[in-house]
Write a protein that binds this DNA or RNA. Structure first.
Length: 774
DNA sequence: GACAGTGAAATTTTT
DNA sequence: TTTCACTGTC
């Protein structure tokens, strides 16, 4: 094990990495380029501290940005030294929730507080902003969230940098008051409130500083102001602080991330040492070159030079394509071709700027039987039926939860109309016995309600109480059964069907054509199932599923299953709800990491990931960068480009369409300015650059709108004798002749299989993919 | 309170 | 093109 001086797990590090791991005594800022092994450094450092420095694992706190990263870090650290499992590795938000749970009373929160997501936040806000259009409420909700990112309270004068509206302060204040009355928190509170507690309670601060002696922060470039404040509050002069980040990969400015946090870290933590990790172990040289040449154009950066340890290789490919259908086909072709040669689907990732773009790929891949998974768009927990049950659960632990109450009191309809709802809420507000307690208020106003509403509220309460009862009685209780009807289920319901998913589902459905009962396993699922049944939501969805062919009851069943691993207690329930709010990736449910599928993913979501082959799609002006971007925001888009491109290990492709359907309209597109920032010689170009590309793309900002007015591709220029083309049905061929006619150019192509076709470029031309220029 | 018909808006990116 | 909020009818 211990060969020459240093243990093996340190010997494999390069000099800078080693230096970073062995560093002690002062604050440390690690500037880690993409693929430079920063996770290895952090995990090794944790293990080394425990092993060689005798640091108590429980006194180590490592904060990451995503749950995935936290899990990976925990795994890798524990792999080096098992004791690392006792260190605390969490996301900022999950750490905040952990802290608040232990100090709920100090924060004036309900002991069983629940975390509101953006949706709930907007719902709450709409009770304050009555009669205001939904979009406006959402905008205000976003601004409140931003204010909290910047650690601004309703009375802070600096709020005007968030919103110019004078009323905003009042809206924000009212919102805060109402949220406080309910006793719940939103996402921003998970950071902001802990800071406030630590500042107002020196004893609490002292205790937690005494506990965590080592604090490591990953992805530091994406920390916002509030998170920075939290970090400061957690540290005393003896705390060892180490932050790792890359200013070139800061892509969450829109969410309050402050690059300044990283640029000014040495000022805020005096005596900071800086170590740079600039050796990239992930990508071949040409990929790094292309990525770097784009981000180099940014003015606002520390500047660093990434060197590839892997050396030369294939140039990135730039493919000009007709439209998004061809783009999807092109991706499928690439993937299929290489898979036939023995590569894995999981080598591939298709990247796009916005989630909406995934649809075309999903359709095409489904068609061509290419297995894929869509990362991040799994909106399971945002589904109506799921949110309904979650609201029931939230109300069960906190009967002051007005948002949850409004959501489910009359669902399915039990004759409790708006006037009854308001009456109950008013009664709760003016009830000195139990302020805000809606459950108690129902009892108070029961006599004033209509017979129907009275019966409805009674039924609702009965369901809540039954759910609560299911929490308290220990195991072997009545068997809870959720009735499930699975008719032949088309893919009618939303977007979560990956190919693999579907196959499994349809196979299963053939087995159980008719009515079948699934029972709740155990634990918390008894409570979930009880609520679903007693509230009438299960029946409601059952009958609707029959009509609409949805799978809502199945989704409920899935939620119940997910809950079964939690204990049937209030604490178990809180844990379950918290887990759902903070980590919606459902990673552990689909932990088929072994599954061989292509990854469809937004560029933002790729942070921290790597793939052998990456296709960045939609690299067009208006899509990426988005049309409205300029200045700082354009720089952020550039960093995003950099992040996406540096995910690729072996091969990188850019695809750029001449036409794209948006909002049901087809419009001409221009190539992204970013493509022009890469030396054309550093790329292998496939297909024809649209005419005027270089000229038009050079005017980076103030670029002409892409939607209207752009001229269609010039077919005379576009189709040239000798070009190689590809057609889905006929395969590869060569352009033999281009002739003019009154309907535009006529192109003659002869295919490798011997066939020959003639077509009008303006019409059928879109069915062909150009493979190589003559 | 359910439902069909309408018209307008929609696409950032996420803990 | 799709989706969603709003309106008027039953």
């Amino acid at each position: 094990m211990q060969s020459a001086g240093l243990p093996d797990y340190l010997e494999i590090l390069n000099p800078e990495q080693k230096q970073a791991v062995l560093h002690t005594g002062k604050p440390l800022l690690i500037l880690a380029g993409a693929g430079s092994g920063k996770t290895r450094v952090i995990t090794t450092k944790i293990a080394w501290l425990i092993r060689e420095k005798g640091v108590d694992p429980r006194s180590i706190l490592a904060v990451t940005f995503t749950n995935k990263a936290a899990r990976e870090m925990a795994e890798r650290a524990a792999a080096i030294d098992g004791r690392a499992a006792d260190a605390m590795l969490r996301t900022f938000h999950s750490f905040g929730a952990w802290f608040l749970r232990r100090n709920a009373v100090l924060a004036g929160l309900a002991p069983g507080f629940v975390i509101y997501d953006d949706d709930d936040t907007a719902s709450l806000l709409s009770t304050i902003m009555e009669g205001v259009p939904r979009a406006e409420v959402r905008a205000a909700a976003r601004n409140i969230s931003r204010a909290k990112d910047y650690f601004l309270s309703p009375d802070d004068p600096a709020l005007d940098r968030i919103s110019y509206s004078k009323q905003f302060n009042n809206i924000y204040r009212d919102y805060e008051n109402k949220l406080a009355a309910i006793g719940n928190v939103d996402f921003g509170d998970l950071i902001k409130k802990p800071v406030e507690i630590l500042r107002n309670n020196p004893d609490v601060a002292q205790r937690i500083r005494g506990r965590f002696r080592v604090i490591l922060v990953d992805e530091y470039q994406d920390a916002n102001v509030a998170q920075f404040e939290l970090l400061k509050e957690l540290c005393d002069s003896q705390t060892y602080v180490c932050v790792v980040g890359d200013d070139d990969q800061s892509i969450y400015r829109f969410r309050g991330a402050e690059v300044r946090n990283i640029l000014q870290f040495p000022d805020r933590f005096p005596g900071t040492d800086i170590i740079r990790l600039e050796r990239n172990y992930r990508s071949i040289e040409p990929i790094l070159e292309a990525a770097s040449s784009v981000v180099d154009k940014n003015k606002n950066r520390l500047g660093k030079k990434l060197r590839s340890e892997r050396g030369p290789g294939k140039k990135p490919v730039l493919a000009f394509l007709a439209d998004q259908d061809e783009e999807a086909g092109y991706c499928a072709d690439l993937i299929e071709t290489l898979v036939k040669k023995g590569n894995k689907y999981s080598d591939w990732a298709v990247l796009y700027r916005t989630n909406a773009q995934s649809l075309g790929f999903e359709t095409e891949f489904l068609h061509r039987r290419i297995p894929y998974k869509v990362v991040g768009s799994l909106k399971f927990y945002e589904r109506e039926e799921i949110k309904d049950i979650l609201a029931m659960l939230a109300f069960l632990v906190n009967p002051r939860d007005e948002v949850a109450f409004r959501r489910v009191i009359n669902k399915p309809s039990r004759g409790v109309g708006p006037s009854s709802v308001e009456r109950i809420i008013d009664a709760a507000a003016s009830n000195p016995e139990a302020p805000g307690d809606l459950e108690a208020a129902i009892g108070l106003v029961k006599k004033e309600l209509s017979a129907k509403a009275g019966a409805g509220t009674a039924q609702f309460l009965k369901a809540v109480k039954a759910g609560r009862a299911a929490l308290n009685q220990p195991d072997q209780s009545e068997q809870t059964v959720l009735t499930v009807q699975s008719e032949q289920s088309e893919q009618s319901d939303q977007s979560d069907q990956s190919a693999a998913h579907q196959d499994a589902a349809s196979a299963k459905n053939q087995e159980d054509r008719k009515r079948e009962s699934l029972r709740s396993a155990e634990g918390l699922s008894r409570c979930v199932v009880t609520l679903a049944n007693q509230s009438g939501l299960a029946d409601y969805h059952l009958s609707h599923d029959e009509i609409a062919g949805n799978q809502r009851l199945n989704n409920l069943q899935e939620l119940a299953n997910a809950s079964s691993i939690y204990p049937a207690s209030i604490d178990g329930l809180l844990e379950f709800l918290e887990h759902i709010e903070l980590d919606r990736s459902m990673e552990e449910n689909s932990d088929n990491g072994s599954l061989d599928t292509v990854t469809l993913i937004t560029i933002h979501n790729t942070k921290g990931l790597e793939f052998r082959r990456v296709i960045m799609t939609g690299v067009e002006q208006g899509v990426f960068p988005r049309e409205d971007k300029s200045g700082d925001e354009l720089e952020e888009e550039r960093r995003l480009f950099y992040v996406g491109a540096t995910r690729a290990m072996d091969e990188l492709y850019f695809s750029c369409c001449r036409m794209r359907r948006m909002y049901g309209r087809t419009g001409a597109m221009y190539p992204s300015v970013f493509l022009n920032e890469i030396d054309r010689k550093a790329l292998r170009v496939i297909g024809k650059e649209p005419p005027g590309f270089t000229k038009s793309a050079k005017s980076a900002e103030g670029f002409p709108r892409t939607q209207n007015r752009a001229s269609p591709p010039d077919n005379d220029q576009y189709w040239r004798k000798g070009d190689t083309v590809y057609h889905d049905d006929y395969g590869y061929g060569e352009v033999r002749e281009v002739r003019d006619s009154e309907d535009g150019p006529v192109v003659r192509v002869s295919f490798q299989n011997g066939g020959e076709v003639r077509f009008l470029a303006d019409h059928q031309g879109r069915n062909f993919t150009r493979i190589r220029d003559n």
